[in-house]
Design a protein around this nucleic acid. Structure first.
Lengths: 210, 210
DNA sequence: GTAACTCTTATGAGCTACTAATAAGCAGAA
DNA sequence: TTCTGCTTATTAGTAGCTCATAAGAGTTAC
């Protein structure tokens, strides 16, 4: 790869910076990049006290696992700006390039759905809730980099069932809208819930049709 | 470690929860903790689609390095088992613990939507396509560890518009069903598409209502 | 010149944590 | 009983290493 032969010291410096930039490089990859043999890389790691790939990956992983464990924040897709349970809420999400289709820059529909669904579940006035059904419409394509603001409104609340309307906008222009039927869990017995759900969604399908 | 012998399903659940708690456990450690042989653990991982330790460590590490906090990304939404463009297709997805609600083990609705949506877009007979609208129903809760098989059928094709029906099952039992309106992109000009979409979805909303 | 020295590369044995394929055992249902 | 599902064992092969040993090139010292 690199045309010139480096001195040992220079190589050590380069090695350190390469591993700092990407600690998941194998000795073989490093050897190619530095234009030396694998054995040399191994002597270098020995001299510099650098652990092998497995150890590097493990220590990064365990640091990540111990350091940032915020399961609550992962519950919601997008950032919950405001939430009044039983009434409504607001969520913000930045459309990232990773969310888009390969060739075009258009965000895939299920990301919009995920943001809206998470918000709808969040505004349901219950400690835990599930989505029973939904009707959604993708009014305009969204591109990477745009900021999505989703606004939820609880239209109806009957027992454990909520009907929530979500409208998502970019720069004030609607890009998505949907109506979600949310079912609250009482949290006692989930096997019972299973049996209930089928009836409930069947009943509520009619409610969803305007 | 554990005194009693568990059933296969129970063991799979325990395995998932152990790996969720600590993804850096080796097969040997898991085998000891569950009171079975290493081979059984390996068969279990195979059945549940769980990668080996190296891969788990690497992926956690690289996610940590890229600053991505989302353990279950919506990018990969199942494995396309079969696809006949314009006719139908089949997709498989393993429900991971990271896709579930915190307290309960129930997979969040937007993951089911994502699998179905991706499949619906894939079966549309066009190089590139977008979702215009959808009506979905979550018939039964899905738990982590379960294998989701989604089957898509193109119900209607008119010009650039496809109506695709998707039914998702676990062990043959329906857990999700939805109807998607998919719009093919001709790929020339996306700013034009934007203007079209609003009219098209408005028109097609009627088509979606059975 | 050659001996001493550093640096690099090569070779081989052995390790861990696996994959993949094959076969054998065993318990419960048809 | 035979058949099937599940479990366990065995063997061969893999990546990405460790550790030890050795051979060669290049430089320096005398």
């Amino acid at each position: 790869m690199s045309g010139k032969r480096l001195s040992k010291k220079e190589r050590h410096q380069t090695l350190l910076s390469k591993l700092e930039a990407n600690p998941l490089l194998t000795d073989e990859q490093l050897a190619k990049e530095l234009g030396v043999s694998i054995q040399t890389i191994r002597l270098d790691r020995l001299a510099l006290g650098l652990p092998e790939l497995k150890e590097r990956a493990k220590s990064i992983a365990s640091r990540a696992l111990n350091g940032e464990n915020h399961p609550a924040s992962l519950e919601v897709v997008g950032e919950l700006l405001y939430c009044e349970p039983g009434v409504g809420g607001l969520s913000r999400m930045v459309a990232e390039p990773a969310m888009s289709l390969s060739r075009y820059n258009i965000i895939r529909g299920h990301y919009l759905f995920a943001q809206a669904n998470s918000l709808a579940v969040a505004v349901a006035d219950a400690p835990h809730a599930l989505t029973g059904a939904a009707r959604v419409e993708f009014s305009r394509p969204v591109q990477a980099g745009q900021v999505l603001i989703a606004r939820a409104r609880v239209l109806e609340k009957r027992g454990r069932r909520f009907v929530v309307e979500v409208v998502t906008r970019v720069d004030g222009q609607e890009v998505f809208q949907g109506k979600f039927l949310i079912l609250a869990l009482d949290g006692k017995n989930l096997t019972e819930e299973k049996l209930d759900l089928e009836n409930e969604t069947a009943i509520d399908r009619r409610e969803m049709n305007d």
